[in-house]
Design a protein around this nucleic acid. Structure first.
Lengths: 350, 350
DNA sequence: TCGATCAACTGGATCGTTCCAAACGATATA
DNA sequence: TATATCGTTTGGAACGATCCAGTTGATCGA
């Protein structure tokens, strides 16, 4: 036996165990696992049988130590925002985990301190716990990107480098303008002419991007936008307040919102006034959250192709971690529109 | 320099680097990090300074290899259920990550195949990628628990071993019966007498547990439950259908549901019939999802103390991974009730 | 027949840490 | 003075994999 006397009887088999069983050297077993084409067919078969019989699986720690790679990708998660509808992370995280697995990687979560966006990154990097990061929150610029870039830390961003178009890191993003154009055009196609916009503060790049989609769609039909837009915080209460004011002052028949959270605010206002979403006033949100899917009569919402985003992110990661590293251009994906009762009569079967 | 000529100039410092700088041996530096009390005060200080100056952080892979521990906890995540309101994982995962960090652990996500609940566990375990698992989906018994137990894989379950009360693994759970009792009593306190129940199929242990809370509260006030209960799938459509039938046949004035998803179904029925939740009919859900928080007029819902659950889970993990392992008894936590407009007039400021 | 070439395989060194046994100097005890 | 004890520090070995240089044996052309 290659097992050293002191080993626990339950200890997992090692390369040496397999090697002995197959009657070859350690290195040959290693090659059987990592470079099968280096072996003669019959040897490969013999080794594979031994691997099978012993249930051998390479020890991660040893492999990581030798190859200086952990095959782990770090993802920072932020505290759940209570009282908002945004839940895209859920879907994205799952897609990312799924796609990463196919690429032989796993996702390591770490906690984010909203006040210190850099916390956590440094330790994981220096302790070689992860090979790379996926950076998601790039709402207002992103200090992480700059910082990680300076540290030469491999990372892929979900979100464009708004504040630094010349940035050279790989990124994947969803075209918010196209999404809101889609949403607005959808309402205009149904005969609406006064479609209002409720979005975020002007310093939000994403917010301005989405807003531009609304503007574009309105202008394309020669419709005025004056007095039809409102910029507020991303809360239900703000959406409620903004929609109340807009209804009073601008009399829109439809709302396109920068988020499902804001759209829910509109639904609150409608409920208060005895108006029915989809019949009296049309509402469209953004993110296709679970809220949009289950709230009566269903909230029409722009849906980000998060599965595709994950696939592109993992592709970029693989390029980044290849030898030599290959960094492609940024990828911009187009969202779709999930149409529900809030923008059509379908929700009530009428 | 202890650095070998071939080393990259950007390679992180190692124990040897620190040792040389501080003029001590590797082992002493190691002790400074792991067993500071073994060192003389002045030596410790000198080593700590060297660590600080070089920005040394132990290499995870090397440490993991030597100690046979990864300090990673595996968590399987399931595909997001589209069209449901359940989003407790989001909150739980975040709490778990946060709490784990304080315990020096990180959370490794892996994908779950709903058809094969065991997939993924085995590989991670055998490749020593994780030290332990947190098992969350224990809805209908849990094959994982049995399987992991047989493999002597350390794990903590979020969810009781319903089908095997004698199980010896550590678990943490939330008292669903207490939650539904709380919800039902809340409605009864407001004068409701005919409170209906919409729950899950009878083979769901969790569903039956929650239902028993409703039964208990009704009986405590001497109220009949006959004809007031319905058992369906956990979808909005089922909740909608069940509530429509119950309204027609049993004329309840309040609904307590086993999930927010089902409660949303009730809201759909009310909206169709022009009834107002909270004014005409009271509705209570379970999970306090984001949906419950933002849907007008706000859905009263039973809230699981997921932060506490995470704390208890991590405590159990630490016990499990200690030398020698210490397994405490199961922990049962009590949920609270988040009261909103759907069960009171508050939602409309009336 | 010989050396060159090549596929196939081998064994030692190595990654960075911790375990282990031993060594050190200083103090306490006989 | 010699021995035991203790707090402190040390260097070699080990964890299990991969890298690298080297060996083997067969095939080939001259």
């Amino acid at each position: 036996m290659a097992r050293i006397p002191g080993r626990q009887p339950t200890a997992p088999p090692t390369l040496a165990d397999v090697a002995e069983r197959a009657g070859v050297s350690r290195q040959t077993v290693s090659n059987a696992v990592n470079n099968p084409d280096l072996l003669r067919a019959d040897t490969l078969l013999r080794v594979q049988e031994a691997i099978e019989e012993l249930g051998y699986l390479p020890n991660r720690a040893a492999r990581n130590l030798r190859t200086r790679a952990s095959h782990l990708v770090g993802l920072r998660i932020n505290p759940v925002q209570e009282g908002t509808a945004s839940a895209i992370m859920d879907r994205f995280v799952h897609s990312l985990v799924e796609t990463s697995r196919e690429a032989g990687k796993h996702v390591l979560l770490f906690a984010g301190d909203p006040l210190d966006p850099l916390a956590g990154y440094d330790d994981l990097l220096r302790s070689t716990a992860v090979d790379a990061f996926v950076v998601t929150d790039t709402y207002l610029g992103n200090p992480q990107a700059t910082w990680l870039g300076a540290r030469r830390a491999p990372f892929v961003a979900f979100g464009r480098p708004w504040d630094n178009p010349g940035a050279t890191h790989p990124w994947v993003d969803v075209d918010g303008a196209a999404g809101c154009d889609l949403a607005t055009s959808h309402l205009l196609d149904q005969g609406h002419e006064r479609v209002a916009w409720i979005g975020w503060r002007k310093d939000s790049w994403i917010g301005e991007d989405r807003r531009s989609g609304w503007t574009r769609a309105m202008r394309a039909r020669g419709l005025a936008t004056t007095g039809l837009a409102s910029r507020v915080e991303d809360t239900v209460a703000s959406g409620r307040g903004a929609s109340a004011v807009l209804l009073d002052e601008a009399r829109p028949t439809g709302f396109v919102c920068a988020s499902d959270t804001l759209a829910m605010g509109v639904l609150h206002t409608l409920a208060e006034r005895g108006l029915v979403a989809g019949r009296d006033v049309a509402v469209v949100g953004f993110d296709d959250s679970q809220v949009a899917q289950v709230v009566p009569p269903g909230l029409t919402s722009v849906r980000q192709p998060l599965e595709e985003v994950a696939v592109e992110v993992v592709k970029a990661l693989e390029g980044l971690l290849a030898h030599p590293p290959a960094v492609g251009p940024g990828v911009l994906l187009t969202p779709s529109l999930a149409v529900r009762g809030s923008s059509s009569a379908v929700g009530f079967g009428a």
